[in-house]
């Protein structure tokens, strides 16, 4: 059977809904991974030993095991200990924390490379160390690290497809469902790919906007 793209409009609403879920889960997980990344970086660099050690275990878990396994664990595993999360929430937490660990690595390096004089200047006007970190050091570190974090966020968008395995009807799963009804894999996978591409472009655009805003102040 040949290709027939005219079938697309009939199922477009399902695909668009999947798109919305993908965008929603990506945005939510991106926000979690950004602020989680800052928090993790601060813990890794400044927290007392007793907090840092268990945290390192979590970090290792998220970096050293497949994201797929992490999603299974959060969605199916946690139920057994009484934590029953909706699939969307489980997906956001899994993706968000997974990428928070990667963002944290970037932010840690950036914090350490902020000139020592910045902390000193902040302390000499009377700020405490945590105030100085919050107002002076971390804002500079985060600005320096926006481009590589942007790359992580694009990886996050692509990996959001994995959330389909715990039943979130995001773009990839929606495409699969439509294919199940129509037996038209090529048309709908291509369509899904096109949507991913468009979302990708939007994210790059947003990233450029942010970078440009920030570059004025550097």
């Amino acid at each position: 059977m040949g290709l027939d793209f005219t079938i697309i409009p009939k199922y477009l609403d399902i695909i668009l809904l999947g798109c919305a879920w993908t965008i929603g889960i990506t945005i939510a997980a991106a926000i979690l991974s950004f602020f989680g990344g800052i928090l993790f970086a601060v813990i890794a660099l400044y927290a007392p030993w007793i907090i840092r050690q268990p945290f390192r275990l979590i970090e290792w878990m998220f970096m050293g095991t497949p994201l797929l396994l992490q999603l299974f664990l959060i969605y199916f595993g946690l139920v057994q200990i009484g934590i029953d999360l909706p699939a969307f929430v489980a997906g956001v937490i899994g993706l968000g924390l997974h990428f928070a660990v990667y963002n944290s690595e970037l932010i840690q390096t950036a914090i350490l490379s902020v000139d020592k004089g910045q902390m000193e200047a902040a302390r000499t006007v009377g700020l405490s160390r945590s105030q100085a970190l919050r107002k002076v050091v971390i804002p500079q570190a985060v600005r320096a690290v926006i481009p590589p974090i942007g790359n992580n966020m694009i990886a996050l968008l692509k990996d959001s497809a994995l959330v389909s395995v715990i039943g979130v009807s995001e773009l990839t799963l929606s495409a699969q469902r439509v294919i199940g009804k129509t037996y038209r894999p090529f048309e709908f996978y291509i369509l899904a790919a096109a949507f991913y591409y468009v979302i990708n472009l939007c994210m790059e655009w947003v990233q450029r906007k942010i970078e440009r805003r920030i570059s004025i102040s550097r």
Partner: peptide, 19 residues
């Protein structure tokens, strides 16, 4: 921190907050 509020310091390399 309270003491430092009473002492202004100026550095060789300014250390202005660039952001």
């Amino acid at each position: 921190n309270a003491m430092r509020q009473q002492v202004g310091m100026v550095f060789q390399h300014f250390n202005l907050f660039p952001h």
